[in-house]
């Protein structure tokens, strides 16, 4: 998952580029829903068995990055390692109107770029599962002057369910060591 070069790329034919465009459109539409605070519609894009993972990042010696740079899914404490139920709880909490970390609501803008199609199974012509990587810049402004900028990479797995794409896995690599924000109330 951390090494794109190790994954054989799909053949770059017309199907590949059409699918890449479709995946990018999915990611942009998803960002649009989040920025418009349409949380219920956003949750509909998530597969029921979604894994949403954001590790913490350590300063480690050269040569140790693969083994130690990020906290590990399945055993360590991370910023996020959760499922759709927990994300739905987060949305529900924001909508109570008394979640003070998001009341009044933040102004949030997701910039998504560098979309790369890494894998399409069984094929780009008839895809059921795709893996894509992208970059994000999430801007959060709240209350009066409070501003946070989150920048990093995402690796997403999308799955075709009843003719529509659903997000089945999202790994978020935030490029910070000590988190430079008091809270992580935004979705990535």
């Amino acid at each position: 998952m951390n090494d794109a070069a190790a994954t054989p790329r799909p053949t770059r034919d017309l199907d590949f580029y059409l699918l890449k465009e479709e995946v990018a459109a999915f990611l942009y539409e998803e960002a649009e829903l989040l920025d418009q605070r349409r949380y219920t519609a956003w949750l509909d894009l998530l597969a029921d068995d979604l894994v949403y993972f954001m590790p913490m990042r350590r300063n480690v010696k050269a040569g140790e990055h693969a083994a130690r740079e990020n906290t590990r899914e399945g055993s360590d404490i991370s910023w996020f390692e959760e499922d759709k139920w927990t994300l739905a709880k987060r949305c529900e909490q924001i909508m109570t109107g008394v979640h003070w970390a998001e009341e009044p609501l933040s102004r949030i803008c997701h910039m998504v770029s560098n979309v790369q199609l890494l894998e399409a199974l069984p094929s780009a012509a008839a895809p059921q599962t795709v893996t894509a990587r992208s970059r994000f810049l999430v801007y959060q402004n709240r209350v009066e002057t409070e501003t946070y900028i989150f920048v990093g990479k995402r690796t997403d797995t999308l799955r075709r369910v009843d003719g529509a794409w659903k997000l089945a896995r999202r790994e978020i690599i935030l490029d910070q060591n000590v988190l430079l924000a008091k809270n992580l109330t935004v979705f990535f």
């Binding site: 954001m54 404490i77 991370s78 910023w79 390692e81 709880k89 003070w100 970390a101 809270n183 109330t185």
Partner: peptide, 19 residues
């Protein structure tokens, strides 16, 4: 571990309001 992560810290649904 999962309960701690959703309760505490900057991503913790309880402690966010403290912050």
């Amino acid at each position: 571990r999962h309960f701690y992560m959703r309760y505490s810290g900057p991503a913790g649904m309880t402690e966010q309001d403290d912050m």
